[in-house]
Design a protein around this nucleic acid. Structure first.
Lengths: 184, 184
DNA sequence: CCCTGCATGTAATCCGTTACATGATTGG
DNA sequence: CCAATCATGTAACGGATTACATGCAGGG
């Protein structure tokens, strides 16, 4: 139920419409908690029903601007302070690694190289994001940068691990010829 | 739909019953792709319906031993070689960081310290797991060790990042007094 | 006038979690 | 004989993804 708190958190900084929130997500929370448009509108409805947010004003094209209520602020604080985050361990990418025995060493190495490149690209993307948000000094951006740093370190970890793992696979099957080197 | 492939992968090494697979998961795949008992049995049924596995023999207490079919092996290879893994980005833990502006610097630091300690404990757990599986030399264990190494590196990253982030929060709010030091 | 962007909603489906429900076998 | 373990299944619910569906407003 974290989307609920993501929305409460965004609305705690500034009132906004569903559409606004959707845009706000794109360059910030979507990196740590993706949400689709339909999910977002659905959750806003439920939050309003629960009295955690209210429609502060209605504008053109049916636009509804939401603001948090005191109950909503309370719920957000409770979640921040009392609910321990659940460590997520669900890595599609690592699952495949367990089954490398089912494919050739060359295919395994190709897989790892792709992962390494994907991680490098992700690092690039985050670095760009960092430049883009550089001027802002609001709380949300300041603390978001902590998350960004996590992402940068994580993409480095992915790259370094993949390189290391390629070495391990080669050591395990010296016949692998992806990176040509004189056979002994 | 990765549980499906996790099961195909395990059955590709050795035929097993649902119960066996459940036990096999515990110290290996559960670290990268958790699954509950009910999910597992459900998926086995669907895999059998789809002809990717078959009941090779029925034993005592209703035990059904499954084995992969050729179609199942093919599906596994296809998944390993042709389906790019989806990078998961859903970090409950980082989501909270964005909203540090809603709590005190001391509370934020306490949160980060808890994360650091949780990561240290996770590192310990994985190190123990590494010792436990040390003697085995089957494919599954050999490649699983690559995933284990990822986990060890990841837990180090978490710890180092948390330490760094604590420093950032302190720099941002010098009044924070969690780690007492003479005020200038 | 038309396209783009603003703006909101519903429905189907899948996957995962939790809980419930049952029963056979083996070892102490 | 009793407890632990082996062994399989079903049902309810919630969250996420995808697709569908609609319509207004402003700028060129």
């Amino acid at each position: 139920m974290s989307l609920r708190h993501a929305l409460l958190g965004l609305l705690s900084e500034d009132p906004a419409s569903g559409y606004d929130l959707l845009k706000l997500f794109e360059n910030s929370l979507a990196n740590v908690w993706p949400a689709t448009q339909s999910q977002l509108y659905g959750e806003l409805g439920r939050l309003a029903d629960a009295g955690l947010i209210t429609v502060r004003s209605e504008g053109a094209r049916g636009r509804k601007e939401y603001a948090v209520t005191d109950a909503g602020r309370e719920e957000l604080r409770h979640w921040l302070l009392d609910v321990p985050p659940v460590p997520i361990r669900r890595y599609d990418m690592l699952l495949r690694v367990f089954f490398f025995g089912q494919i050739s060493a060359d295919d395994a190495i190709a897989y790892l190289r792709e992962q390494q490149q994907a991680a490098a690209a992700e690092g690039e993307r985050l670095a760009e994001l960092g430049k883009m948000i550089a001027p802002h000094q609001d709380n949300f951006t300041v603390y978001g940068r902590l998350a960004l740093e996590w992402g940068l370190r994580s993409s480095r970890l992915h790259q370094e691990w993949a390189e290391w793992a390629i070495g391990e696979v080669k050591a395990h099957d010296p016949a692998a010829n992806t990176d040509p080197c004189e056979p002994g």
